[in-house]
Design a protein around this nucleic acid. Structure first.
Length: 517
RNA sequence: GGCGCUAUCGUCUAGGGGUUAGGACGGAAGAUUCUCAAUCUUCAAACCCGGGUUCGAUUCCCGGUAGCGCUACCA
C-alpha cells in the first residue's frame, strides 16, 4: 500500500527500565503526528549503552506502548526496509560512516588521552571559561595521524565543527541559534571503537529517512552538534520538534520520587489507557479554542498539531488524570470494568472467579458468581478514581464488622441521635422476624416496606431514619443505594464464595449482639 | 561558571497591541438524592519584575530574576 505522504517519525527509547510518562508522551505525539499525516512510525531501540540495556526491558517497552494503543510500521519486532532497528546491530554502519568522514577530512583523529582532556576542562572551568576542546589534534597532518593510528596508538575520531554559528528551525521553539564556539569538535567514535550517542542518532535518523525528529527538549542543546553532523555527511537536516519536560508538583523533573511515573505503574493502579492517552495529550498541547478536554485517540489524530505544542514545561497533575479516568470508567461497558477489576479482588476471592471463568460451561453456579461480581463492580466503579481502589470500597460488602461500626468516631454522632435507639430496635426486630430475611432472600421491596414501617412507628425520617439503618447494614452512615445493595448482600450470602458475605439478617444479628441490647 | 530553553489562576491551558483575560482539574457555596458519590448552578482564583517601542502593552523588543536542560571517549 503506497503511503500518501513521506512523513517518517521515530521513537527511540533506551531499554534501561520501564516506559516513563515523559517518553510515553513523546511517543504519543510522534504517533499522533504520523497517523494524521498518513506517515510511518519507526521504533528504534537505542541499546548502545550495553551496561544498562536489558533485553527484558525492550519487551516491556513494547508491551507498554501497545497497552497505550500505539503501534508502528517498522521496528525490531516487525522488521522493515531500513533495519536493523537495534543500534547494537548497526555498529559496522557507524564505523563505516566515521571512516568516510575521516577520509573526506570532515573529521580527524584525536590522540589526546582522557586525563589530558579532563585537565583541560578543569582548567577552563577554574578560569570561568567554556570547557571546550582546544582543537589540539585538528592541526595534525592526516597522513601523519593515519601512521600513528596504524602504529597502534589509541585515538578517537572527532568531527570538525564549522567556523560559523549553527542555526536550525524547531517547530515548537522557532529559530534557534548556537555559536560554533560552544559546540567544540565532538568525538563521534571512541578510541574503543564504540560510537557516541549524538553521532549514532544522526546516522540512524538519516538512514531511516526520518523527516521529523520529535523528542524531549533535553536534546535541544545537542541539536547543533547533530545539525553539523548532517551537514558534514551531506545529508538533509530533518525538521525538529522539541517537547517540554514533564515536572513533578515540586517543579522538579518527574521521577520515581514523585510516585507513579511509569506506564506500568498506572496500568497496575487501574488507570485506563484511554484516560492516560487523553491526559498526556493535554500536557503541552491544547486544541484550537482551548476549551475541549475529552478526546479519543481518533479525535486526537484529527485535531493534533505540532504547531500548537507549548514550549514551556508542564507539571503532572494526578487529580486531573483521575478526573479523566473516572470519566472513562463510567463510559466503559460494565463487562470491561468487571474484567479489569478482577485481579484486584484476588485477596477476597482468591483464584475463585478466574477458575470459575475457565470452566464455566460445566457448572450452573458459575454464571451466578460472575453476574454477582459484575453487579458489585457496577455498584462501586463509578465512585472510584482508579480500579485498584475497588477492594477497599467493597469492604462494606465483604468485611462487615459490627463492633468497629459501633466504635467508629464517624458514627458516634448518628448513634447519639434521639431517634436512633428506637429506629435500631424496631429495624432489628422486623428484620429478625422476617422470613425472607432469615433465608437471605430479602428483596429491595420488602426492605423498603420494613423501612417504611420503622418510619411510621418511630416518626424518624430522612437522615434520622436512614443513617442508623445504614450503620447496621453496612457499618457506615453513607454509601450506595439500598435498592442496589440489598440484592448484592442477599445473593452474595448464598454464593459459595471463599470469603463469605453476610446477608442483612446476619448483619442485624451481629450488630444486636455487639450492641448488647 | 558558560550556553540554551521557558515564564497567563495552585495545576493544565486559550487568547492576544485596546477583552468583564476564556475553558478544564482542584477548591468554596448552593440545588438535588436517605447519605456519600454522581449531576447541575454559582463563586473565588492569573498575565514574574524593570526598562523601551506605542496614543495604548499581559501581548512586540531589551535587561533582570527564577525554574529547567546541555556543558563527557553517558544516553
Amino acid at each position: 500500500m503506497a503511503l500518501s505522504s513521506s512523513v517518517r517519525v521515530r521513537f527511540a527509547p533506551s531499554p534501561t527500565g520501564h516506559l516513563h510518562v515523559g517518553n510515553a508522551r513523546t511517543t504519543l505525539f510522534n504517533w499522533l503526528f504520523a497517523r494524521q499525516k498518513g506517515g510511518t512510525m519507526v521504533l528504534r531501540i537505542e541499546d548502545t549503552d550495553v551496561g544498562r540495556s536489558e533485553a527484558r526491558f525492550e519487551d516491556q517497552l513494547i508491551a507498554d506502548l501497545k497497552w497505550l494503543g500505539l503501534d508502528w510500521e517498522e521496528g525490531p519486532d516487525v522488521g522493515g526496509e531500513y533495519g536493523p532497528y537495534r543500534q547494537s546491530d548497526r555498529l559496522p554502519i557507524y564505523r563505516e560512516h566515521a571512516e568516510r568522514l575521516l577520509s573526506e577530512h570532515k573529521a580527524y583523529l584525536c590522540f589526546c588521552t582522557e586525563e589530558e582532556l579532563q585537565k583541560e576542562r578543569d582548567r577552563a572551568t577554574a578560569q570561568h571559561r567554556q570547557p571546550i576542546y582546544s582543537g589540539k589534534c585538528r592541526a595534525i597532518d592526516p597522513a601523519e595521524a593515519q601512521r600513528r593510528r596504524a602504529a597502534g596508538e589509541q585515538c578517537a575520531i572527532r568531527l570538525r565543527i564549522p567556523e560559523h554559528p549553527i542555526r536550525f528551525h524547531d517547530i515548537v521553539h522557532g529559530d534557534v541559534e548556537f555559536s560554533n564556539e560552544v559546540v567544540s569538535d565532538p568525538i563521534i567514535l571512541r578510541s574503543s571503537g564504540m560510537p557516541v550517542y549524538n553521532y549514532v542518532v544522526v546516522i540512524d535518523d538519516a538512514l531511516m529517512k526520518i523527516t521529523h525528529v520529535i523528542r524531549g527538549d533535553d536534546h535541544l542543546s545537542n541539536t547543533p552538534k547533530q545539525v553539523a553532523l548532517y551537514e558534514a555527511l551531506g545529508w538533509p537536516v530533518p525538521e525538529f520538534a522539541h517537547l517540554s519536560t514533564i515536572l513533578g508538583a515540586d517543579r522538579e523533573r518527574l521521577s520515581k520520587r514523585h510516585g507513579a511515573t511509569s506506564i506500568a505503574n498506572f496500568r497496575d493502579m487501574g488507570v485506563l489507557p484511554e484516560a492516560l492517552v487523553n491526559y498526556l495529550a493535554l500536557l503541552g498541547w491544547a486544541p484550537t479554542g482551548g476549551t475541549r478536554e475529552i478526546f479519543s485517540s481518533q479525535e486526537l489524530i484529527k485535531e493534533f498539531s505540532l504547531e500548537r505544542v507549548t514550549p514551556s514545561p508542564a507539571v503532572f497533575d494526578m487529580e486531573k488524570l483521575y478526573w479523566l479516568n473516572r470519566h472513562y470508567i463510567k463510559e466503559s461497558p460494565p463487562e470491561r470494568i468487571q474484567k479489569l477489576a478482577l485481579p484486584y479482588f484476588s485477596s477476597l476471592l482468591g483464584e475463585f472467579l478466574s477458575q470459575q471463568e475457565t470452566n464455566k460451561s460445566d457448572s450452573s453456579e458459575v454464571p451466578d458468581v460472575a453476574k454477582w461480581f459484575a453487579s458489585v463492580t457496577q455498584l462501586l466503579a463509578p465512585s472510584v478514581d482508579r480500579l485498584d481502589q475497588l477492594p477497599v470500597r467493597a469492604s462494606l460488602i465483604f468485611n462487615y464488622d459490627a463492633k468497629a461500626a459501633l466504635a467508629s468516631p464517624d458514627n458516634a454522632e448518628v448513634l447519639a441521635w434521639a431517634h436512633t435507639d428506637a429506629v435500631l430496635a424496631r429495624f432489628a426486630f422486623k428484620i429478625l422476624e422476617d422470613e425472607s430475611a432469615r433465608e437471605g432472600k430479602l428483596t429491595p421491596e420488602q426492605f423498603k416496606k420494613i423501612v417504611n414501617e420503622v418510619k411510621a412507628e418511630t416518626a424518624a425520617k430522612g437522615k434520622e431514619l436512614f443513617h442508623p439503618i445504614r450503620i447496621v447494614v453496612t457499618g457506615s452512615h453513607s454509601g450506595p443505594e439500598f435498592d442496589k445493595l440489598i440484592p448484592i448482600l442477599e445473593e452474595g450470602s448464598r454464593l459459595p464464595l471463599p470469603k463469605h458475605v453476610l446477608n442483612v439478617h446476619q448483619r442485624v444479628e451481629q450488630f444486636a449482639k455487639a450492641r448488647g441490647k
